[in-house]
Structures are given as C-alpha cells and as structure tokens.
C-alpha cells in the first residue's frame, strides 16, 4: 500500500497531502479538514472557553451510527453534560462501511441554556434526517429527559455545489465567537457575515493555518513548504 505523504500531525489529527489538497480548487471537504479546524477552534482560537465543545465529523458520525448502549460510556470523559454549548459536524453518509461516503456537511448545535438543538444548513432539507438522528442520540447524552427541542435556523444558502463544508465551519466559528461575547441560541446572527466570498476565502485561510503549523510542528519534506508555494504534486 502506498504510504501517503503526511503534512501535519496536529493534536489528534494527522493530515495527509491528499487531505489538504481538498482545500485547493473547488473540492469537497472531508472529515479530516473539519477535524483540524474544529481542533484549532477548540484548542487555540477559543481555548479559553472551557464550556464549549467541538464535536468533529468522526465522533458525530459515531454518535449517529454507533450502538446507543455504548455511547454513554464512550463520551463520559468529554463531560458533555457540563458544556454550555456543543457544536456537531453533521454528515449525511448513510453507510458506515464505505470510506469516502457522504455528500453534505451541516452544523448542529446544542445550547444548554434553553436545552435546544439548532441546525444550521447551507442547503436546507439535505441533511435533515442525519441532523435529527444525531440530535436524538445526543439528547440522551446531553439532556435531562423530556421532549427534544430542535429547530432549523436560517443561514445563507450556498451558491455552488462544493462549499458546504466551509459554510459549516464558518458558522461554527461565528457561533463560538458570539458565545464568547455572551450571545447564544436565538441571539446569534450568522447570516450577514456568511457571504459567498467570505466563505470561499476560508479555503486559503484554513490552508494557511495548516501550513503555518506544519512549518513549526512537523517535518515537511521540503523545507520551503509554505502556504504560498504549495506544491500539489506528490
């Protein structure tokens, strides 16, 4: 089996060249990029906010498809019930046994203050089943019984067929930032800041974040590896 080129070992995420190549051009994002950005938000940008938790693609997927009997013990170390805000990266892949499955990312949040799940989706309707399924399973781990409260929240629709992952990550960033300013749930305004242009620029922003850290943390094969001269060839 070919050994792929490793670019960055960042906390629990190991990024390969094929992962970061997804940020160039108009490609779909995978859970690796999602996990990197979520870890960055959790451990760097919002490191001071101890009561929020970013639940990346793999863990969210496990919450959606895993054995409900195992889940409680599995997530116990994450102390989810103590968090004021939990953000889930939600993917619609229905088949856990196929690699590279799925076609859409959206963001599901849970705010403890009003015990409500909110679904932020750049292509309304597409991820409904996955998001409600995830909310139902997460409610058992976060809530205190009673009826599940779930609502769809308006965010701008994506104007292409490839940027949903960036809308999801951008929304997560805005919601966390709002939380740091004391705004939660219905008080958060996502719409005006999520312009198509701002969203698309996040590709190079995330790429820069990765390459900055690759320069410091890992041992890139070429010492000249940086965000401006990204060699996409293997």
């Amino acid at each position: 089996m070919d050994k792929e080129t490793k670019v960055l070992d960042y906390h629990d995420v190991l990024l390969y060249r094929t992962d970061i190549d997804l940020l160039t051009g108009d490609k779909w994002l995978n859970d690796q990029i999602v996990s990197f950005f979520f870890e960055y938000l959790q451990l760097e940008k919002y490191a001071r906010l101890k009561d929020i938790f970013f639940c990346g693609g793999s863990l969210s997927f496990l919450l959606l498809h895993g054995d409900p009997l195992d889940l409680e013990a599995m997530v116990a170390p994450l102390k989810l019930r103590e968090r004021e805000l939990v953000l889930f990266a939600c993917n619609d892949n229905p088949d856990p046994s196929s690699a590279g499955g799925g076609s859409h990312w959206s963001l599901l949040t849970y705010t403890k203050q009003d015990s409500t799940f909110r679904h932020y989706n750049s292509a309304m309707g597409l991820n409904e089943e996955a998001a409600t399924g995830l909310a139902t399973n997460a409610w058992n781990l976060l809530g205190s019984g009673g009826k599940l409260k779930y609502r769809n929240v308006y965010i701008p629709r994506q104007i292409n067929s490839y940027d949903c992952g960036l809308y999801m990550l951008g929304t997560a960033d805005i919601i966390a930032e709002s939380y740091s300013q004391g705004l939660q749930g219905a008080d958060v305004v996502v719409g005006t800041r999520l312009t198509p242009d701002a969203v698309h620029k996040m590709r190079s922003h995330i790429l820069d974040l990765i390459m900055e850290r690759a320069g410091k943390v890992s041992k890139p094969q070429s010492s000249k590896l940086n965000s401006h001269e990204l060699d996409v060839k293997h």
Binding site: K27, D31, G100, S103, W105, D163, C164, G165
Partner: peptide
C-alpha cells in the same frame, strides 16, 4: 478494550 473505527466522510453539496 474496544476502539471504534470511523471511515472518511466527505461533503460539498
């Protein structure tokens, strides 16, 4: 002990 394995997911639409 049990390790859970999750495979790659993608999305763009």
């Amino acid at each position: 002990d049990v390790i859970d394995c999750v495979l790659e997911q993608i999305g763009g639409h």
